[in-house]
Design a protein around this nucleic acid. Structure first.
Lengths: 197, 197
DNA sequence: AACTTGACATACCCTGCGTATGTGATGTAT
DNA sequence: ATACATCACATACGCAGGGTATGTCAAGTT
């Protein structure tokens, strides 16, 4: 019963973030009301501004959480497919499929950049980007990929995957265009291979 | 002096759009005040809601204008570099460089998708996307590119270019990373070539 | 010349963010 | 043990900004 104080505080933070994930995903950042959001978990805006500073701070916390979940999941899937070229492809495909989640799209891919600015400047520094960069660095060191800038490669690969996901999500028949997107992604990524050099 | 009515109306529309371009670019969509914006050109919000319906409508009009400018410019540059593989590369590079413009970034690449949704659903249907798709279709028909889905190719290429631009813009030394980005873009795009098939 | 239309202005309401201040419970010092 | 300090959160207020209902005056019509 000694540390009861910080426990309830962390509990409240978790609940606020969870409520924010739902609200931001459903209504979008701009349309989400902080009053409704906090009332939903039995608190008021006072708790929110005390814990996160302002509305943007709450979004940042939500984005960081989702981003970390995505990065670890993508790395896990990539690692399971091998530590070479196949791993990178699997990582990209995983990223595309995760970006199909409306929550991810709305919060991390649309509102996130618009409100918080460039992902690489985020406090979490975009775990997905870092993960892809590390994979690229390894493959370049192994001589699998051309000696391009790893940061550039990661950026463009993630960008391609992101837009593929947005395309699929907006499509009428997602299951039909998904393989096309993954095929095109594989072709693009193959351009980084050292074979033709 | 007969059609004086529609003339001044179109004049006002142009001025509102011009003012909105400035305001949205400088402050971002959310922070741009419609009162300030309209007063800047000697009008009130009444004119705005009459012409564009709501704030989103004004953004849509601005986005459409910029998008059209970008598409025609990219196509022109691409055509000047030839109608083959070099044309596609030049078009992509042009897209990257245009996306370095803060106005383009803020309005078309960040706030646009966040507020209006997926670019392909826009009334202008994203001229840039269409232009790239047509180029891809032509090159596939010529047998220069692998027979991937042209829509997919255009989406991923544009996505890669967009993220390259965001990266460069957020960088400390844009002139230093720009060549890296273009090199990586070229490598990626080369993955679409039919050579290895 | 009377009437209608329409482009825009004016005035109002309401939502929602941020902040200043209050309060009660938890931890600390004497 | 009691007085004090802290802190997490609630309450209350100000204010900006978007949308809408209504007014107005000039341009066009008959």
């Amino acid at each position: 019963m000694v540390k009861r104080r910080v426990e309830t505080m962390e509990e409240n933070r978790r609940r606020l973030i969870a409520a924010a994930r739902r609200a931001f995903a459903e209504k979008g950042y701009a349309a989400a009301s902080m009053d409704d959001l906090t009332a939903e978990v039995g608190l008021t805006r006072g708790a929110l501004y005390h814990n996160f500073g302002d509305k943007r701070g709450l979004l940042a916390a939500v984005v960081e959480q989702i981003d970390m979940e995505m990065a670890s999941r993508a790395q896990e899937i990539g690692a399971r497919a091998g530590d070479g070229w196949q791993g990178l492809l699997a990582e990209g495909a995983a990223y595309i499929e995760m970006a199909l989640d409306p929550e991810v799209q709305r919060i991390v891919l649309l509102d996130g950049p618009a409100v918080l600015g460039d992902p690489s400047q985020w406090p979490s520094q975009s775990g997905c980007l870092q993960a892809t960069r590390q994979t690229a660095e390894r493959l370049i060191a192994q001589g699998v990929l051309k000696p391009v800038d790893p940061e550039a490669a990661a950026r463009l690969l993630n960008g391609a995957a992101l837009n593929a996901a947005l395309w699929i999500a907006a499509s009428d028949e997602p299951q039909h265009v998904l393989p096309k997107a993954i095929e095109a992604f594989g072709a693009l990524a193959a351009g980084l291979l050292k074979t033709s050099a």
